[in-house]
Structures are given as C-alpha cells and as structure tokens.
C-alpha cells in the first residue's frame, strides 16, 4: 500500500479555497521619497540625489548612496528633466489579468543623462513603431490641482518636439 495506491483510491483530492486575508498594505514613500513626491506635486519638478564621491545621480531622490552609504542631504539635491532619454521600452497589449487593452501601451525606462539612474513610466503622443532606444522625451505633468504626490502625477513622457 503506497502513496500511489492511496491517491488512486481517493475519489476527489480534497482542498480548501481561500485568500490572503490582509485587507491592504500601506507603502510609504520614505524620507527621500517624500521629498521627491512633494517636489513633483508642488513644484512640478523631478528631484534627484547626487553622490559626489561615486559620481552618480539617483532618480528619484534617495536618503543614502547605495554604493558608499553616504547620507544624501538637501545639499545633494539635483533637479533633472523634464527632458530624458528612453533607455529601453516594451509594448504592452494585455492588462495584468491577460485581457486585451483597447490601445497598446508603451512602457519605458527613462534616464536623465550620463551617470543617472532612471525609472519606469509610460510614453504618450507617439506611435509604437516610432519609438526607439535613445529617443529624447519629456515629462508631461498632470495639471497642478490633479496632482497627489504619486508617480502618476507625471501623466506620461512624449517625444521632444524638434
């Protein structure tokens, strides 16, 4: 009488259905994140932190340099953008549940110059076949009254008009 015998005799494998009961999570932006998002909402600017020793600019701003552990304070703040560059991109045709999107979305990593980190955002006012790596783009912000200190305060990035 082995595992297999038992399993074949079990008419219906029993199981229990359920979900993780956590109702929701609160993700805070942190001390540096607070500075970044407040600047985005109130001043409409993209804030970064520059580590002199490592010659790297972190976008969004950070409290510390992950390479040398130096604290990055207000004096290390840099304003970057609104112009950036497409570091890489992808074309999304389905939502996270696998349903077809009415219009494909273009997601891209945007960088703001040499020795600068980037972040993920959407591209707009451009057709997918026109997008290419290295393309110059600029941030399009939501109107001030609609901004709520979130990354979506930037509506999307669009190609810089020549």
């Amino acid at each position: 009488m082995g595992f297999t015998d038992r399993f074949q005799k079990t008419t219906e494998p029993r199981h229990r259905l359920g979900a993780m009961e956590a109702d929701h999570y609160i993700y805070s932006a942190g001390i540096a994140g607070e500075k970044f998002f407040t600047a985005l909402r109130d001043r409409g600017i993209i804030l970064a932190s520059h580590c002199k020793a490592c010659a790297i600019t972190y976008v969004p701003s950070r409290l510390f340099c992950e390479r040398c552990f130096a604290e990055l304070t207000d004096s290390d703040d840099r304003e970057v953008g609104p112009e950036g560059e497409v570091a890489t991109f992808t074309l999304v045709r389905q939502d996270s549940a696998g349903n077809a999107l009415p219009e494909p979305e273009i997601l891209a990593v945007i960088r703001f110059g040499h020795e600068t980190t980037g972040f993920l955002h959407k591209l707009g006012e451009v057709s997918p076949e026109k997008v290419e790596t290295g393309m110059k783009v600029e941030a399009v912000l939501k109107p001030q009254e609609e901004r709520e200190a979130r990354i979506t305060d930037i509506a999307y990035f669009r190609p810089v008009k020549k």
Binding site: M20, A22, Y27, S28, A29, E34, A149
Partner: peptide
C-alpha cells in the same frame, strides 16, 4: 506622508 495603498 506620501504613500500608496494596495490590496492583494
């Protein structure tokens, strides 16, 4: 405090 909430 800027934050995001999300539901699993």
């Amino acid at each position: 405090v800027p934050h995001v909430t999300s539901r699993p």
